[in-house]
Structure formats: structure tokens, C-alpha cells
């Protein structure tokens, strides 16, 4: 019985190593890109505190920089735009305000002026819970 010839032929089969390489590369690329796009995080100096809960997925992430300007998804916005975004989320959810989670990332050097205005705006639309983002020190 001769097995040797068959074995030599077997090694000539398709080499899947480069394919796996590319697949992994694409996989990791998309994982990274989706993570970045989901968070919508501006570069802000958040209050250095322990927080109370781990961050969960949110329906809307609002950034407020040290000058008190509102930024959502990298674009500067006004309170009216936030109201519009919330209305859109409400329409998608069937009007259930309990399902909407708003994460507010506020620079610690900002004053309470814009946060207060935002809170009032959200409350007028029936959203009475906000999640304030903090940065874990260390």
C-alpha cells in the first residue's frame, strides 16, 4: 500500500491562511469602526468621579463642551435640534419616554447654564432621567 503520493497531493490544496488574515482584518476593522460610531464621544474633560453605574447603550449621547456648546455626533447643535432628535426617537419607540436613555457628557469646566437648559428641555418632553457621564480616575 502506497500512501505517500496521496499525501503529497494533499499539501497542494487551497491555502486559506491569507483568506483568514483578511477576514480577521475586516472583522476587527468593522468592530472598531462600529464602536467609535456608537459612542459619539467628543474629547471632553469629564468630572473625575467613580460614578454609580456602568455605562449602557443609550438612545442619544449629548456632549456639552467647556464653553457650554452642545455637540451631537460631532455636529454643533441647538436645544431645538435636541428636541427634534428626541421627538424622532419617541416616534420610533411609539411615544414611550421610559425607553429613551439620554447620556449627557459634560465638560467639568462648563457652568450649569447649558445643562440646566437641556434638563428643562428634556423634562418638557417627558424625559426626567438623565445619565451623566463621568470618567473613572486613574
Amino acid at each position: 500500500m502506497k500512501l505517500s503520493k496521496k499525501r503529497v497531493q494533499h499539501t497542494k490544496g487551497m491555502d486559506i491562511t491569507p483568506m483568514i488574515d483578511i477576514v480577521f482584518l475586516l472583522l476587527i476593522f468593522f468592530i472598531t469602526v462600529t464602536q467609535v460610531s456608537e459612542t459619539n464621544r467628543e474629547k471632553l474633560e469629564l468630572p473625575k468621579l467613580q460614578g454609580a453605574k456602568d455605562q449602557k447603550k443609550s438612545s442619544l449621547t449629548v456632549n456639552i463642551d467647556k464653553k457650554g456648546e452642545i455637540i451631537v455626533g460631532g455636529k454643533p447643535m441647538q436645544l431645538a435640534d435636541i428636541a427634534f432628535l428626541i421627538n424622532k426617537e419617541l416616534e420610533a419607540n411609539g411615544g414611550d419616554t421610559g425607553l429613551i436613555t439620554v447620556v449627557v457628557r459634560i465638560d467639568q469646566r462648563a457652568t450649569c447654564e447649558t445643562p440646566n437648559a437641556l434638563v428643562k428641555q428634556l423634562a418638557s418632553q417627558g424625559i426626567s432621567k438623565v445619565r451623566l457621564a463621568v470618567e473613572v480616575p486613574g
Partner: peptide, 12 residues
């Protein structure tokens, strides 16, 4: 950076 949350109820 590791971010966490402070959940607060707002009362206007």
C-alpha cells in the same frame, strides 16, 4: 477611557 454614569432624576 473607562466611563461610568451617574443617574439622576431631574425635577424642573
Amino acid at each position: 477611557k473607562t466611563e461610568r454614569e451617574l443617574d439622576a432624576v431631574t425635577k424642573v
